[in-house]
Design a protein around this nucleic acid. Structure first.
Length: 274
DNA sequence: AGAGATACCTGGGAGC
DNA sequence: TGCTCCCAGGTATCTC
């Protein structure tokens, strides 16, 4: 499932391919994902050139020559492909954008949690208004131990839900939150407001390390721009605790426990994580 | 304001 | 084999 590292890699690949190409025609096959796709057909995109591709959290923003942009989010199952004409349409491909060079930009989403819409760009922020309210980028220098410590004061919820809160820090989903807490030796059930300053330092350090490692691993799976997918890449092999139902801790051998937090399964080692 | 629950959606797996 | 049920996930929205 695409999380921040996947969005980063898809964005990097698309930023080498899309800018400079123009939209010839838009084809919509399904009425809705997270929002209806039909407005794309009346958005008069034909003739507009894609100017740039930027990432914010798990969103990608593709600038257009008229000052507007495409806003994309991959939900859980979003896949982007660029293919030549004649390639058979897959079952869950909901949108084709025919480009000036004949290639077709395709958006696939099995579970329809993805977002694809045309939006404006706020002059003050340089980003779509839809993205106002997002928290800091986890790889930004602003995201440090002091930031996390201050942001967590008087927060009574558990630390796992706190670091997954997109209004605090963006792009840390269930998998990376689980792995980060394991690496930092902090129980997912700890009250966020009770974290110590050194614990916040560890959390931030491990989150950055794991995200960067995952970006690096995913990068090598994108060999060309004909198949820019959102698969998990090789990092999935390096998961130490996420999804290890019935398994044991790779550090101490204790049985891995599962607790449901915020409606999501949280794997942790009761001995290594306090 | 913050926290928790719920809905959205589909495919895959378990259990009968 | 075929049916039902549950689970996975991010985000928006609702309630308390």
């Amino acid at each position: 499932m695409p999380e921040l590292p996947e969005a980063e890699n898809i964005g990097r690949a698309l930023s080498k391919f899309l800018p400079g190409r123009s939209v010839c025609r838009v084809e919509v096959f399904s009425p809705a994902m997270r929002e209806p796709l039909t407005p794309l057909l009346t958005a008069r995109l034909e003739g507009l050139t894609i100017t740039d591709v930027r990432r914010r959290g798990r969103y990608l923003v593709c600038g257009l020559s008229d000052g507007r942009a495409f806003l994309m989010h991959f939900g859980m199952s979003g896949v982007v492909r660029v293919e030549p004409p004649g390639t058979p349409k897959r079952k869950h491909e909901h949108l084709f954008i025919h480009l000036s060079d004949g290639m077709i930009f395709k958006f696939e989403c099995t579970r329809r949690f993805s977002l694809f819409k045309v939006c404006s760009i706020d002059r003050a922020t340089g980003w779509p208004p839809e993205l106002a309210g997002l928290g800091v980028e986890p790889l930004d220098a602003m995201f440090d131990g002091e930031f996390l410590w201050k942001a967590s004061r008087r927060r009574s919820g558990c630390v796992k839900n706190f670091i997954m809160d997109n209004s605090v820090v963006v792009g840390i989903g269930n998998i990376y939150a689980t792995e980060t807490l394991f690496a930092a030796g902090i129980s997912p059930e700890r009250v966020a407001g009770a974290l110590t300053r050194p614990e916040c330092d560890r959390l931030v350090r491990e989150a950055k390390r794991i995200l960067l490692r995952s970006i690096e691993m995913g990068g090598s799976t994108i060999s060309d721009f004909l198949n820019v997918d959102g698969s998990e890449g090789k990092f999935a092999r390096e998961l130490l605790i996420y999804g290890k139902r019935g398994g044991v801790c790779p550090v101490c051998g204790s049985a891995i426990k599962i607790v449901r937090l915020g409606g999501r399964s949280s794997f942790y080692c009761p001995k290594c994580q306090k």
